[in-house]
Every structure is written in structure tokens, then in C-alpha cells.
Amino acid sequence: MRRGPIVALAGVSGLAGVSGLAAVLAWSEWLNRRWSRTLVADAAGPTQAVVVLGFRNPGPAANVVNRWRVRAGLRSIDPAARARLVLSGGTTTSRRSEARVLADHAVGVLGYDGPLVLEEESRTTWENVARVLPLVEDADRITFVSQPAHALKARVYVARQRPDLVGRLTRAADHRWGEWLPLKPALAAYGLWTLRGVRRDLRGR
């Protein structure tokens, strides 16, 4: 039996599958990078407020999403700035607030020992922004930290609630090439769903 054409066809199909996967991964990386760099300014000044948005946390310890968000928040701090870390999130699926869970991880696990502010009342992203802005409006630079699409949604809400502060919004270190790579396509798809209600705000950006 001749196997040459069959083997060749399988090889072509395999290459097509690999190239297709590579294209999907590249698209998801590009999209997350784009979100990370949308609606941010080149703000300058000696003070910075880094706002980490909490994620649903049913247990007493930070889950994998919140652990990553805290790490991303800490690496978003400019070491040359007078910076403070603002952790935002109320009580949702646990008796402890998301902000408290984030703080425990930042201080107890990652060793953060700088200025710390907790916002423990919000239950939605809109409320996160509304309750945090009075705590950070004095900062020269305001940096929202979450997954890139979620952080962008928060910045859109800043533009709606306090357009005078948009010029102070700076990019977080929330996108790194290859980080979360296997999950990037899913994160990109979820991000598109997350941003569905603010697409009109983002046209032309």
C-alpha cells in the first residue's frame, strides 16, 4: 500500500493545526497588549496610586486570580515614586472582603511593607471605581491593575465618572508576553465579553 500521499497529507494537516494555534495565540497576545495600552496617558509626577481590583474569592486565602493581580500590582509600582497600594473589593462569596484577602497576600506572602489603603464596600467594577477615586484623586498617577480587559473597563468607568482624572491614568504591568499563554485565548474571549458594554466608549482608540 502506498503511504506517501497519506503521510504527506497528515503532515500538511499537522502544520495547518500548528499554524492555526500559533495564530490564535498571537491574536490573543496582541489583543491583551492592546487593552493594556488603551486609555492610558504619559502622566508624570512624584506620587502614584496603584489600584488592584479584587476577584470573587470564596475562601480565606487568595485564589489564583487574586494572587496574580497582587503580583501585577506590586510590579506596577514605580520604585522612584511615592506610591501607595489601594486594594478594592467588598464581601461577595466569603465573609472576608476581597480587599482584605488581597492585603493578606500582599503583606503576608509577598512581603509588601509600603503604604496600604483598603476599599471594602464595592461589589461591582463600577462601584470599585466610584469608591476608589476619592481615595486616589490626589495622586499624580493612577494605575488600575487587573486582567487587561478588566482594567481597561475600570479606566472607561473613570472616564465616565471623573473625566478630569483620565489624564492621570497610567499603564499597569498587567501584560507580559507569554504570561498565562495557554489561557490567553480564553482570556481574550472573556475580555471581549467583559467589554461589550463599553465598546462605544472605545471607538477610535
Rank of each mutant, 00 (worst) to 15 (best):
H150F: 00
G73L: 01
G90Y: 00
A81V: 09
A72R: 08
Q147M: 15
L152G: 01
R34A: 09
V40Y: 02
L39C: 12
L39G: 08
R71Y: 13
E98Y: 02
I77V: 08
R160E: 11
L87N: 04
T170F: 01
V52S: 03
R160Q: 11
A72E: 12
T124M: 04
V86S: 01
P58F: 11
L118N: 06
G90R: 08
V86I: 09
R84K: 06
T170P: 00
T125R: 03
Q48A: 13
A80R: 15
R56Y: 14
R56L: 07
G73N: 02
L110H: 07
T47Q: 05
D140Y: 07
R123G: 15
L53V: 13
P115E: 12
G54N: 00
H105K: 05
V40C: 01
A43W: 10
G59M: 05
R160A: 03
V50A: 03
V145P: 06
S88M: 02
G90C: 12
R95L: 14
D42M: 08
R75V: 09
P115Q: 15
V136W: 01
V70W: 00
A62L: 13
S36N: 13
I142Q: 04
S94A: 11
V70P: 00
E29N: 15
V132I: 12
L152N: 07
L110Y: 00
R123E: 15
N32S: 14
P115D: 11
E121S: 15
R67H: 11
S88G: 09
R168Y: 12
E98M: 06
